[in-house]
Structure formats: C-alpha cells, structure tokens
Nucleic acid binder design. Structure first.
Lengths: 336, 336
DNA sequence: GTGAAAGCGCTAACAC
DNA sequence: GTGTTAGCGCTTTCAC
C-alpha cells in the first residue's frame, strides 16, 4: 500500500531545468510571471522526469484539496441503481473533471454511519460536499451544516435542522406535474389518477402537490402511493383499476413507475392512450422511448442538474449562491 | 473553497494534554508504547478540541493515502445504472469503510479520458485501484499497469496488454451457466435457447461458453446476442420465437434480460414454465423475486465480490495474491 | 516510555 | 522576473 517508486520532486525538476524550486512551482501552476525561455525549460524537465505534483504536499500548504465529497444516504440499494442517480452522478463527474477535482464517494449504510461521514466532512478532507438527502427527516443536512463544509444539495431537502438556507439544485417538480395533468385535462380526460413516489421525498411530495393544484377535487381513490419502481407502478395501477375502473388517465410520478403502469394496462386490455392516457416524469430515454407505446412524459434535465450542483459548489460563493430550480418540459410521445 | 475555520493541530492537543507532539501522535495512532495515564489525557484533549488529523500532512510523511480509486470505464450510462454495479460498489464501500479508506470514483467518458485517469493513478494519490474494465479491447488495463498502482479488476479482464497476470475477482460464470442449462436439460427440455449479454464482455462470453458446454450442438438459431437489458431481452426473445417457435426453454444471461423474456412470453401466450422454462443469472432480488412467475436463476454473490476486491487490494500483497473466482448456485423458483 | 528535532514536498511571502 | 526562505501538520528516528 506504499507508493511504488519514489517519484521525482519539484526539486529535481528545478535542478534539471537549472532554476529555483519557486520558479519551477510557478510554471507547474500555470507559468504566470515567468519568462518564456524558462517556462519552456521547466516544462521540458517535467516531461522528461515524468513529474507529477504531490497533492498531499500541495494541500498541506494551500489548504485546498481539489476534491469534493458526494454523499449518498440510502438504506436501500435501489436508489443507487436508479438511472436518475447514475445520470446525475455523471453530470457531477464531468463538471468536477473540468475543474480538476476528484469525486470522493461516501455511501452511508443507515444511521450508525452518519457520524463517520460527519467526521470525514469535518476533517477538512474535501473542498465541499454534494449531498443527496432523500428523506424528510434525514439527519444528514444538520450534520453537514455542523461540519461546516460548503454544501450543495441534490433536490430540495426536507425540513430538518440546518436546512433553512441550504443551497440546492432541483427541477420544477410542482410545475412539471401541473403541466402533465393539465395536458391530460386538455385531452378531455376527467378521471385522472396519480401514482406518487415515496412521499417522504420532496420530489414526490412536490409532484403530488402539482397534481392537486390542477385537479383539486380529485377523488382520493384516484391517488395511489408508490415507490418510483416498475413493480411498484404495477401494484399501484392494479389498485387504482380496482378502486376506479372508470379512470381515463394516469399521471405516474416517474417513468419507471409509468412503465409498470403500461404493462398492467396492456394486461388488462386497456388501450393506451385511447382508453387510458398515461404521462410519466423524468424523460429517462432508456425507459420512455422503449415503452410501448412510447411514453409522454415530463422532461427534467438530470445530467445538467448534476453539473450545476458541482458548478455551484466550485464556483466559489456557495454562501452567496441561491438555490436553482430548473424548468421542466412536457415531451409528447404516444401514450397521451 | 478554503477550509472554513482553522482546525486544531496535533500541537494544540499536545499542549492541552501536557505532553509532546510525538506522544500525542502515538496516542492518535493507536497508543502503543504510551503509558495509560498519558493515553487518557491525550484522548481527552482530542475529544475536547475536536481534533481530526490532517490527512494531507499525514500522507506527506507516511506516503499512504487511505484512499483507493474505483475506475469505471463506460461510454454508456447504462452500466452505472445496472443494479449489478450498484451492489458491487456497495460491497466495496463497506469494506473500504472498515479499513478507514476512502473511495475515489473515477468515471471515464470515452477514450480521451483515459489519459486523465492514467495521470491520476500514476500521480500516487491513492493506495490502489479497483478497475471495472468491461470490454475486451479496453486500453485501461494496460494503462493501469503502466501507472504502477496495485490493482484488482472486477471481473476477468479481456485479453489486452498488461492483463497477463492481473488479479481479478469474478464469479464462476461458465460453471453457473452450465448449471442453469443442465437444470433445463434435467427438466427434459430439448430445445433450449440462450440470450447472451454483450459478447465483448468476458462475463457474457463465459456464460455462452458454459451454455455450449452443456448444449454443444444447439441450433445456432437458438442463440441470440443481446445486451443485459430488459428491452434487449424482449427483442431477443421475439427473434428467437420467430426463428424457432418450438423452443421449450430459455437461459437468459442475466435477470434483467430474463424479465424481458417473461414479458414477451406472456404477451405471446406461452405459459412459464410449462410451455417454456426460463432461467436467469445474477439473482438480483429486486428483479428475480418480482417477476411473474418468480425467476429461477443462478446466484452470484455480487456484494461479496465487491468486498473481496477491496479486501484483496488492502490486504497488502496484491502482487502475491491470486485471482478469485467465486462459486455460483442455482436458485430454484417458479420459472423453471 | 517520552521528548527533541529532522524532514516529507510544496507554495507564498519576501527579498533581490 | 527570479531566488531564498519559512513554514503547512504530521510521523519518526534518535537521544535521553
């Protein structure tokens, strides 16, 4: 577990280039204020020696780490397997790379683990944290705030201690839901059902709010709580059909659930969209374009949200920064 | 992006405990060779001051980093969203946590990115690397070897430069496939089809090999290449039914594909398992237990594979270590 | 067993 | 512009 060979130091580079360590350092860090011929010589020495700066030594003096923590708190594995996360992580990764920053992944397994994360963040190992705090009563936000690390949340955090002026990136869940339901209304549908996500997550709660804003006096039996999974979507759809066989439209809180919905409708012989119109949420291409019929859904810019989180964090003034809520757009395909 | 407050140093702890920095350091690192009363006093000072060691300073002298890189090379997002990965990552994370090591995630976007990863690994920022090199002609293994970092691969790497004596953790894909097909044979099935994964991945290739070992003279039309996804499984199944409507069993290379298979069979009115028996691979509970009928499949210990990778790497002697191939077991449910 | 002191490799004042 | 120098916070000989 030790470094394999002793790597060349800045000293060695300086010696080879015939300059001082300071000058070598300047060149390595951009070369400002160093005359061209010297820059060139140092660059060459770096090249020849295969010099790579020792990040530990650098951090020790600069107190920067060029690393940010991505904290994913989740009891269940599922969340990680959610393409939604994968995409966001990808956006984050791209942006960090562009800033020469590393991604330190912190997966927490239940509450006992939280203190470990707290210690790590408080330990000043990273320049900031991107936190996915999914549940309303999650202790993580408070913990992160106490650690005193610049933080950006993925999705609006639920109300808990230290969440008051948290910076977050989210999409307009409520507005997107409204657009979805309004579209169904415009189609002339009058018995519109909603399959929610886990309501202890703000995204699911916000989408339900949006649904209610457009369909304020929907029969409660037209609302089924679910869990963002295809299997959950199937279960919920069966329930709904049992309770209100006359329903003529469904707004599912995400595409995964919507795919389950479509399967049940086919199984029960209901045509989509003529008998029942279906709208999803996410516009996860791997899902929405593959379903039969192709899914009409609300697009949110998932990868972009990840990028933005990282950009906000690295941009410097997280303290000054405001949260960002990105717009959603309705993507019409064949299911509604 | 700078450390928020100046955190207490070891010096401060030593002062408060009335000992030297050296002694304080000894206590912080386990306390060997320090008399009990002093140990106690230092511990208390640490507690009171909320001292956390500065990892950069520590690395600078110890040349250890307590961090390992997890490299995932994948053009497509899909791979990341694969529950298989999520589980393995989880196992890795758990084991690293137990060793007080951090997980640095390196996602590569296409070939251009490889040099960045190479530089990072060669830069001596981490104690080792866990690499998921999925494709046969992946340049990553060679790159990693040149970087000179202790490395363990996830899955048997394809043959490429620097792969000769690579250490890897894999499950017995070939044996598992044999068991699956043999089970179908034992059930009396004689027209057994196989839906493969992407054949440029060793796991998929090995499973196909296993299939062929038990069914050496299967009609080529009974083999359909696919991609480990539900949608891909559906497509492949339709193909197979078109080519050989008389087939009476299907071995799908993973559970995700098998779920697609089941859907197509239901759609076409074939009963499972009476008309067509179906076996999957993975035993991804979220999938295999949810299908209708519940999926008979080959279990591989995914999370354990992740743990093992980390353990092998941190155990010290990667150079001395041998690759590990974990056994698989057939899990009988209702589909075969 | 404990302390004093010498760096680890680098950056950032500060001189020149 | 470039070099000199003083640390960053820690571990680790080496005396005592």
């Amino acid at each position: 577990m030790t470094e394999t060979a002793s790597r060349p130091t800045l000293e060695a580079v300086a010696a080879r280039a015939g300059v001082s360590r300071a000058t070598a350092s300047r060149v390595v860090n951009g070369g400002d204020g160093v005359r061209e011929p010297l820059v060139e010589r140092v660059r060459q020495a770096v090249e020849e020696l295969g010099y790579v700066p020792n990040q530990a030594a650098r951090s020790l003096v600069t107190r920067r780490h060029d690393a940010v923590a991505v904290v994913i708190a989740e009891p269940e594995t599922r969340v990680f397997a959610d393409p939604f996360f994968a995409l966001q992580l990808r956006g984050i990764s791209k942006e960090l790379t562009a800033h020469d920053s590393q991604l330190v992944l912190l997966l927490t397994e239940g509450r006992d683990d939280h203190s470990r994360v707290g210690r790590y963040l408080a330990g000043g190992h990273v320049d900031g944290a991107l936190v996915f705090s999914l549940h309303l009563d999650d202790p993580l936000p408070g913990l992160v705030q106490r650690a005193g690390v610049p933080t950006v949340f993925g999705g609006r955090p639920g109300w808990s201690e230290g969440t008051r002026d948290a910076v977050y990136v989210d999409s307009d869940n409520r507005g997107g839901a409204r657009a979805a339901v309004q579209h169904l209304v415009d189609l002339g549908r009058t018995r519109i059902a909603h399959i929610t996500g886990p309501l202890d997550q703000t995204s699911a709660a916000d989408r339900l709010d949006g649904f209610r804003e457009v369909a304020p006096d929907a029969d409660p039996r037209l609302i089924a709580e679910s869990d963002f999974t295809p299997a959950g979507g199937e279960r919920a759809m069966r329930e709904l059909l049992d309770r209100r066989p006359d329903l003529d439209a469904v707004f599912a809180a995400n595409d995964l659930a919507a795919s389950g919905v479509l399967r049940v409708l086919r199984e029960r012989g209901r045509r989509v969209p003529s008998d029942v119109a279906v709208v999803g949420f996410d516009d996860m291409l791997a899902v929405a374009e593959q379903t039969d019929p192709a899914l009409t859904t609300v697009r949110q810019p998932i990868e972009e949200m990840g990028r933005l989180m990282a950009r906000l964090l690295l941009g410097g003034g997280v303290d000054a920064a405001a949260s960002v809520v990105l717009p959603t757009t309705l993507v019409r395909r064949d299911s509604a």
